[in-house]
């Protein structure tokens, strides 16, 4: 009986971690200006409808400068909008040592005392109390890679240098 409980717990844990990892990264967004909803990720494609400023949308994915979205009105409409016309809906700010900040602190190997007034971050106070640390600079040197290995790394990822047109390079 006891074994069964542990087995069920294990299954639940596996499924919960799997669902976290595989969850699609859908984001909530809001239009910051009146925008055209296009059928494809191109201005040359068919215009589906006009979206109003402040309209809420669900962002599914991005292709170059376009977000694929679905409107939240009924019936919903789907299509593509210029990414610069949308902003993600804000997340609540981090406070104290809870939430993401605590997670990051626990991951890091930081051993500094916890401040009771804010998260352990890099702020002006850190900078004001800083002293030159040449040992850390020497440690940094040990992580350096050669240009040859960076080129090999780029090739493994399918990256290649692209020639840019004069118009694109023009400041």
């Amino acid at each position: 009986m006891c074994h069964n409980r542990y087995f069920l717990l294990l299954i639940l844990l596996i499924f919960s971690s799997f669902s976290t990892l595989s969850a699609p990264k859908v984001k909530q967004g809001k239009l910051i200006k009146t925008s055209t909803l296009f059928a494809q990720a191109s201005k040359q494609s068919k215009a589906v409808m006009q979206l109003k400023i402040d309209e809420s949308v669900v962002i599914h994915k991005r292709q170059r400068a376009w977000y694929q979205i679905t409107t939240q009105e009924k019936p919903p409409h789907s299509g593509w909008v210029n990414m610069l016309n949308i902003r993600f809906v804000g997340v609540s700010k981090r406070q104290g040592e809870l939430g993401v900040a605590a997670l990051l602190s626990s991951i890091s190997n930081d051993t500094r005392a916890t401040s009771s007034t804010g998260i352990r971050g890099f702020d002006e106070k850190d900078l004001a109390n800083a002293k030159a640390n040449m040992q850390q600079v020497a440690l940094l040197d040990t992580y350096v890679v050669t240009q040859d290995s960076a080129i090999k790394f780029a090739k493994q990822g399918g990256l290649a240098t692209k020639k840019m047109s004069n118009e694109q390079v023009k400041k």
Partner: peptide, 29 residues
């Protein structure tokens, strides 16, 4: 950099630092 790292040290994980160096060096090239 010595002062910056004096304020906050490096995250001492060779794999991650080398990965960041590989991406950075490719851009630098």
């Amino acid at each position: 950099s010595a002062v910056l790292l004096g304020a906050r040290g490096l995250y001492q994980n060779k794999n991650i630092n080398e990965y960041v160096n590989q991406v950075g060096m490719w851009l630098a090239i």
